[in-house]
Every structure is written in structure tokens, then in C-alpha cells.
Design a protein around this nucleic acid. Structure first.
Lengths: 253, 253
DNA sequence: TATTACATCTCGTCG
DNA sequence: CGACGAGGTGTAATA
């Protein structure tokens, strides 16, 4: 596989504000721009925030994303999402990076007191094939409903109702509706109420219906409500479910 | 203000795998390590994913955070949250970065075919004072409940119930309870159901109670549910609310 | 564009 | 530590 040179644009050592601004404005279109320096940051929009002087890591992407990271936490301290417009310029002798998001209107302003490092890298994008999401769990259950209950026949997936979408709608041996709510991990009381809403709705429409909550686990309070509403919890291991699904798929090839 | 040197550790140009590994293992504790190179990445845990060869931006933080960014989107393609353990080593002549999270057990493995850049920067952390959050809106409403309704008397804030916390609990002129649910921006049907739960709970306890949803806007379907449940919507501008609150605070000083 | 619901959500807070 | 809800959530799918 052939790769283009890593560095699209670069300045050796600590760049001058003019050099950094040029680098950002030219490099932002092609790849990822990384700037490290001492800066003050302000955000104004739906909310407002400001950061005093400190050394931070600024990342600018070609889709307009701005990320300002510090030494801790996974989330950037300040950011603007994809679709924002970024411009770098020199104001009063210092580098200023301004990012504007249109809807909602929000601006981020980074004023560098000192630029320690600036470089543009030819980073690309690729597709990520993720296995083990909630929809994977749903698929596995649809393929093999006996995991939930013997004799279950799936009637529909993502069935729209007045109050949201039912993950899986099925019928049991007796022909009664079974509404199945799926959560990838620990189900909270919210999931129970959601399920209860669906069940109540179907009951009001005159159907005989039961509700089943399928998740890897359930919180203690959620379990109480579940019992109170006369619903059922089925524990599944999402990993095993999706892995075994893969195995089956492989075997059937 | 005095700042330490920006670069904690560095290697000029494209570093050798051994150099990069050393840099990561020593630099990860003190600041933020940035690595750019061509790599393959895999994630295994509750879900699983893999990325083929491509040039990416790897960020390692002193709190154990690992972020693997590509050229687009605000979110990292692959990551491990704070608290994970990172180790870099050379395997088969190439740089490998491995990150392990204990609970839930999840691993990220980055195998570099080529390292274009690696550096550790002395980035810090700072406090962010954000104005305009939901709690700011709640505070403003508590300070001036007439925004919602004349003659309202606030009884409690964040009042715990069996099914969650009531944002604001008040009494109207007639002594009836008024349960107020606050959303910073567009309220969806979830907010309505949440409010309906609280109201139902209080009603069952024998109280006379009304429900009010306060938000900057409401989705059309949410509005329907609101009417169906006989609840009331009050529109507020969170920005004006918090800004005017600030003004009042300033004036009163 | 608005709406909906998921996310390896992250993050703080409270018990 | 679990539980719970907010977040400037972001992200994709759908109508």
C-alpha cells in the first residue's frame, strides 16, 4: 500500500504566528492540523465559557471540526463540531484561531500567547466495522427468538407506535403479542417505563400483550418497576450473542 | 505567568520504533503524547472493531485516555477512556501501543507500520466555568418563578421521587403543587413522559398537582403528548434567562 | 430540515 | 461502587 508523505506542511521548532496561521489555513483542507501552545480560549453560543492561559493541544480537521484538548479526560474542553468554519490569522502580533458554527450560532476563539508546535498531517478516514451494537443484538434475537422464549414468532422490528418504536414485536404460542425492548447493557428504569408505555398502548387497543426487557443486566430499581408493571427481564450477553451469530454465519458459508 | 518547556520528550523527524516506545512510556505520565503514523487498530471489549492500515493521529493522556482520530468527525474512531492503562513496546520490529481498560475489560491495540511523528507535550488541565447550563436555567427560574406563572412559590429544587428528580417543585396561589420540568433546549417527548410520571406519582399520593414543561422549544409530537396528558408548556430563552440573571447579579453588587 | 434513538457515549453528582 | 441524568453531547437513520 502506498502512502503519501505524512507531513503536509510543517515549520521547524516553534513557528512564528504568521507561519502558524499560513500552515493552519493551508493544511486544514487536506488533513489534520495539530497545534500546541499557550493560549486563552473562549466559547460563546447557547452557553458561554472561557479558559485562562495554559498550554493546550488544538486539533483542526478538514471537515471543520475543532478540538481543544487538555491533559485529562476523553472529551475536549472546548470544541466546535464538523461543519464549522475555521480561520487563522495574526492579530496584535499573536496567532488567533477562530471557529464559527452557523446553526446554532456558536464561536470558539483561541488566542495563542505562544506557539510551541504546529504541523499538518495527511491523515485520512476509513470505515469502521463495529460488531456488538444494539442493532446487532436485535438481529441476533430476531434470528433466534428462542433465546428469549420458546415458540416465539417475530412479527416486526422497529415497529412504530404513537409513543416510539418497539424494538421487536412478536407473538407467543398462544398468539399473544410480546413486546420486546432491547438494551445493549444495563437497563435502567427508563427502559422499563418505555416498555410499559408500549404494553399499555397495545392493551388499550384491546390486544393481549406481554412485555419483555432484554438486556445484559438491570439496575435494582428498574427491576422493582419491572415487577410492579408485571414485565419480564431476560438476561443476555451481547458479546456472546453477536460472537455466536458470527460463528453461525461463518459455519453456514 | 511562567510556563515549563512545551516539549517533554521528542525525537527529530520520523522516530525509530524503539525511540517512539520510550517516548510514549516516559511522556505519557507527564503530559500529552501525540503520535502520527500508519497503523492498524483493533478494539475488543463489549463490542469489537478493526481498522485497516491508514495514517492516524494517536493521543495518549496522563490519565490513561487513548484517542485515535482520523481526518473527519469530532469523535475519535477508536478510544479508551480515562483510567485505562497504556503501554508501548516494539514487537517484530514495529511500534505497538496497547491500552487496557479493566471494567469493563476492553483493549485497544495500535500497530504502527510507520511512525511519522511522535512527541510529548507539557499540556495541563484547567477549570472551565460554563454559563448557560440547565442548572443555570433552573436557578434563574427559582430566583424569579413569575417567568413561569404569577404567584408561584418554589417549594423545592431537585426533589427526589421514586422515579427521578423533580427539577422544581412549587405551589400555585391555590396551594396546588406545580411540578416543573426544565429543558435547556428543544424538549422531546421523553421530557413530557418524564413530567407525566412525576405528576402521576403525586396524583396517586392524593395531591392536587399540575405539570409544567419549561424549555426553549418543544417538538411537535412532544406538544401533542403534552396536551394529551393535560400538561402545560412555557417557552423561555435560556440565553436571555442566564444573561439577564447575570445582569441582575451585577446590578445588585 | 426536523425528529428519533443509540453510543464501547462521557462526565459529574449523589447515595 | 452503582445509579441517574445532563451534555454546547455527537452520530446515523428516517421521514
Amino acid at each position: 500500500m502506498l502512502f503519501k508523505p505524512a507531513v503536509v506542511a510543517n515549520v521547524a521548532g516553534a513557528p512564528k504566528p504568521e507561519e502558524a496561521a499560513r500552515l493552519i489555513n493551508s493544511g486544514k483542507r487536506r488533513g489534520v492540523v495539530v497545534v500546541v501552545g499557550i493560549c486563552e480560549v473562549s466559547y460563546t453560543g447557547r452557553a458561554a465559557a472561557a479558559l485562562g492561559p495554559g498550554r493546550r493541544l488544538l486539533i483542526l480537521k478538514r471537515d471543520g471540526t475543532l478540538l481543544l484538548h487538555e491533559a485529562e479526560k476523553a472529551q475536549p474542553k472546548i470544541w466546535n463540531p464538523p461543519g464549522s468554519f475555521t480561520a487563522a490569522y495574526v492579530e496584535g502580533g499573536v496567532l488567533v484561531v477562530k471557529s464559527v458554527r452557523s446553526r446554532p450560532f456558536e464561536t470558539v476563539r483561541v488566542v495563542f500567547r505562544q506557539v510551541d508546535f504546529a504541523s499538518a498531517f495527511d491523515v485520512g478516514t476509513s470505515e469502521l466495522a463495529l460488531v456488538g451494537t444494539e442493532s446487532d443484538v436485535v438481529e441476533a434475537l430476531v434470528r433466534n427468538p428462542s433465546i428469549i422464549e420458546e415458540g416465539l414468532e417475530v412479527v416486526g422490528v422497529e415497529v412504530p407506535t404513537d409513543v416510539g418504536h418497539i424494538d421487536i414485536l412478536a407473538r407467543d404460542r398462544g398468539g399473544r403479542y410480546v413486546i420486546i425492548e432491547v438494551k445493549r447493557d444495563v437497563a435502567t428504569h427508563d427502559a422499563v417505563f418505555q416498555l410499559a408505555r408500549y404494553v399499555e398502548l397495545y392493551r388499550r387497543k384491546g390486544h393481549e400483550v406481554r412485555g419483555v426487557l432484554v438486556a445484559s443486566d438491570i439496575s435494582s430499581t428498574a427491576l422493582e418497576y419491572l415487577k410492579r408493571y408485571d414485565l419480564v427481564f431476560v438476561k443476555v450477553n451481547p458479546r456472546e450473542l453477536t460472537v455466536s451469530t458470527n460463528k453461525n454465519t461463518l459455519n453456514s458459508k
